[in-house]
Design a protein around this nucleic acid. Structure first.
Length: 829
DNA sequence: ATTATCCGGGG
DNA sequence: GTGTACGGATAAT
């Protein structure tokens, strides 16, 4: 198939992107996969550029200055290659511009700075070269692309890295074929285990003991390996090397041989790769893993969550970052540890080992090390499975925002939204406003705005609650009211005046850019949802796409109020929430007018009591509201709850906001705001709170009272299991730095006396024991405890966890402590 | 209440 | 890399 002379056309899936400067020209190096699973590097020239505003500029004079442009630098002389006139819209106003092309990407920054110092306004000066290439050429990563050109043997990229490990294809023309995703991917997960005492991470000092690999190729074949450098096991996947240096060399060899498209790790940007880099440097092992012969690039230290690690031609996915920054909003877990995330997403867990025993086992060459090798492999396996499972989401995101997956998974939401907008800006011939400078950011930081409206509930137990909520409230307000920087306070009409903010209005005649983009996003999602319903296409990808579109749409409002945004518009963000408050308040008023009792409302939701009305009447109310809603706005039925409880705020008789519990018709509890999950509560308090909520919501009040009284009896008799009484608190700094000695510090000091080193970040566990004096004197390590302080647990844990619930039912704390009193219920029903 | 600092993930 | 985190929670004031 290789024809070295004549131009040919090839189809491929691009997955990684770099650029190289060679002989004053800049070339994209697109690492791509062919349909037969072979890899190639497509090389394509593209000129970096930026824009200069020339509205009131003497262009003849400017042309003269650009022609003679020269700047002093040490190397790589920045040059202006060419310029051409163009027009674009900046915040609704037409601008005459020059598109100035330069010789290499960094020259954009150097030359535009110089032009700015002449008093010129420059734009698009900080857009990453590769991103700009993808947007301008309308190339979507991980989808089918075609190129015209020819293969070239022994291609020299001009960087002396050694040879390209895959064939080079010099492209003259490149074009998107369709949006079909690359599905056949070869993955490799990497995980290391290090020597560590007292949780210290010291890559300069402590060796890597094991390197685990778990790979899966296009045909589903699994590759397992653990490298190590001591002899302690006969496990078939463990390979023993002479020493750490030999292990690192073998590590490199394995990656070079396996040659996956995706290499993944869990927190590997912040830990594994930086650690490997430091160890390899120590032994002068060159980590030339890149497909162009370049070395592993790490930035950031092995103990900090900063920077990223890159191998050219292999996409390094730190799956932890994608989960934390993007996917995590989808998850229930509030810890992003591998164990927590894997149990939720995969339903499998890490192997249980005590990592503090790894170093001693290594020192003693113990047989126990085998367990750690198994643990190592399991971590790599979980990481790989996470990566594989989340890949449809990553790819869909990448297709929607048009960014390489390497960049995408490391981005925060604001940047993702902005990338999406930037991609659309090209289609609408819109020029992006520049990013704010330091002073601007500081000023924006000061500016605040009011959020959603929360209706103060009356504490109580309620029956038959119907909840309605506005579907995508903020996005639909933005599109329905055309909220954007260009439409704000337009000159042509003053009709759509913002409630509460009468000084603001939005144009009703000309659509603004952001609402148009957002409207398309919402429509696109409806289409995808329709496809899912009709089961047209690959459901997993469609669902991933729907999710991506949804969270992008939901981020527009936050984006406009985000200090770092290009399309920052505080008035827009303020107006969005002002409209939202207005809509929810109007909904509440309407409900009251219809004879419903409203018990609660928060931002976009409204809780009604059905009372003696029929379900249909509530629905009729919803339809009526919907008749008057503009644009894509819609009030939806969220659910019906046979019972719900709203408690009072601490030390007050007013209802607490955002703190309630509901039970649905299937008996599922929905608990919001109760502290049932906080670390510094004992298991006893958490358990009792949850059980009481469950009983109360099932109308078993008598039973819940008895349960609490029984538990109090058990507590007082000293029979409660000690495990349930452990309180966990984190040590946050050096012990000597604490000025006030709380119980957790006192316990940590005792631990230190026993020879246990206390480092910040450790969580100490303690139980409050019987005795006299200060609480901290009574705090003891769980293993030392014989008798706990029942009084303390009653007054500081058990009662506080349930008293607000019983208060609603008419019982005071005394009533829980003394039997017999049975009044107070009737007034609620 | 408000402001400053710490922390995440990883061994 | 057309660079140098960030947002939430907790502690201190």
């Amino acid at each position: 198939m290789m024809n070295h002379k004549n131009s040919m056309e090839i189809d491929f899936y691009p997955f990684d992107f770099e650029y190289k400067v060679k002989e004053d020209k800049t070339y994209l190096h697109i690492y791509a996969k062919l349909k037969d699973n072979k890899k190639i590097c497509v090389i394509h020239e593209f000129k970096p550029y930026f824009y200069v505003k020339i509205n009131d500029i003497d262009t003849q004079e400017l042309a003269k200055r650009l022609k003679n442009f020269e700047i002093e630098t040490t190397k790589d002389i920045p040059k202006i290659v060419s310029w051409e006139e163009t027009e674009k819209e900046l915040l609704g106003k037409n601008q005459k511009l020059w598109k100035v092309k330069v010789n290499y990407p960094r020259a954009v920054s150097i030359i535009s700075k110089e032009l700015s110092s002449w008093g010129l306004d420059c734009y698009d000066t900080d857009i990453l070269f590769i991103h700009s290439y993808l947007r301008d050429n309308k190339i979507l990563p991980m989808t089918l692309v075609k190129a015209e050109g020819k293969f070239q043997e022994n291609y020299d990229d001009g960087h002396n890295n050694g040879e390209l490990k895959i064939p080079a294809f010099i492209a003259d023309k490149i074009e998107q074929v369709n949006t079909e995703s690359m599905v056949r991917i070869k993955y490799l997960a990497v995980d290391i285990e290090c020597y560590s005492k007292h949780k210290e991470i010291l890559p300069e000092q402590n060796p890597i003991l094991m390197i685990g690999f778990y790979g899966i190729d296009e045909t589903g074949n699994v590759f397992k390996k653990v490298l190590t450098w001591k002899d302690y096991t006969d496990l078939d996947y463990v390979e023993k090397l002479k020493d750490e240096k030999e292990m690192l060399l073998r590590f490199k060899e394995i990656i070079n041989e396996y040659q996956p498209e995706i290499i993944t790790g869990y927190f590997s940007d912040g830990f594994d790769f930086p650690y490997i880099r430091i160890r390899a440097d120590k032994f002068n092992v060159k980590l030339d893993l890149g497909l162009d012969g370049s070395e592993l690039i790490t930035s950031g230290k092995a103990d900090r969550n900063i920077g990223s690690s890159k191998i050219k031609g292999i996409v390094h996915i730190d799956i932890f970052k994608f989960i934390r920054y993007i996917f995590g909003k989808n998850l229930k877990t509030d810890s992003y540890s591998l164990d927590a995330v894997a149990s939720e997403i995969l339903g499998s867990k890490k192997h249980e080992v005590d990592l503090s025993l790894l170093a001693p086992a290594w020192d003693n060459n113990s047989k126990e090390l085998e367990k750690f090798a198994e643990y190592n492999l399991q971590d790599a396996k979980l990481t790989l499975e996470l990566c594989e499972k989340l890949m449809p989401d990553i790819i869909e995101f990448s297709k929607i925002v048009g960014l390489p997956i390497f960049d995408l998974i490391r981005m925060r939401f604001s940047k993702l939204v902005e990338s999406y907008i930037l991609k659309r800006a090209i289609e609408y011939n819109v020029l992006a406003p520049n990013k704010p400078g330091k002073a601007e950011i500081e000023q924006r930081f000061e500016e605040t705005y009011q959020g959603g409206f929360v209706y103060e509930p009356t504490p109580g137990m309620y029956k038959d609650i119907i909840v309605f909520d506005f579907k995508s409230l903020y996005p639909t307000i933005i599109t329905a009211h055309n909220i954007g920087p260009e439409s704000l306070k337009c000159d042509c009409c003053e009709e759509d005046i913002v409630p509460e903010k009468e000084e603001y209005w939005f144009c009703t005649k000309k659509k603004a850019f952001l609402p148009v983009v957002l409207e398309n996003l919402i429509l696109r999602r409806s289409e995808v949802k329709k496809l899912i319903k009709e089961k047209k296409g690959e459901v997993k990808s469609l669902e991933a796409r729907s999710y991506a579109l949804k969270i992008l749409a939901n981020s527009f409002y936050g984006y406009m109020g985000f200090f770092g945004a290009r399309w920052y518009c505080l008035e827009c963000a303020r107006s969005t929430t002002a409209y939202a408050r207005d809509y929810i308040k109007k909904t509440i008023d309407q409900a009251i007018k219809k004879g419903f009792k409203v018990i609660y409302a928060d931002t976009d939701s409204c809780f009604l009591l059905l009372g003696d009305k029929k379900r249909e009447e509530a629905f009729a109310f919803m339809y009526e509201i919907n008749l008057d809603l503009p644009g894509q706005m819609e009030l939806e039925y969220e659910g019906q709850y046979p019972r719900g409880i709203f408690v009072a705020a601490k030390g007050s008789d007013k209802g607490a906001k955002k703190k309630y519990a509901l039970i649905d018709q299937e008996g599922r509890m929905k608990i919001t705001g109760f502290e049932t999950v906080r670390r510094n509560w004992s298991l006893l308090a958490k358990e009792v709170q949850k059980k009481v909520l469950g009983l109360v919501l099932n109308d078993k009040i008598e039973e819940s009272l008895n349960y609490v009284r029984e538990t109090i009896k058990e507590l007082n008799s000293g029979k409660v299991e000690l495990d349930k009484l452990i309180i966990k608190t984190q040590i946050t700094k050096e012990l000597s730095a604490y000025s006030s000695i709380g119980p957790h510090v006192a316990v940590a000091l005792k631990m230190e006396d026993k020879g246990i080193k206390i480092v910040p970040g450790m969580v100490v566990q303690y139980i409050i024991t019987k005795g006299t004096g200060l609480i901290r004197e009574k705090a003891k390590l769980p293993e030392e405890v014989k008798e706990y302080d029942a009084n303390y647990y009653l007054n500081n844990q058990l009662l506080p966890s349930v008293s607000s619930i019983f208060l609603v039912l008419g019982y005071k704390e005394e009533d829980l402590l003394n039997e017999g009193k049975q009044e107070g219920l009737s007034k609620f029903f």
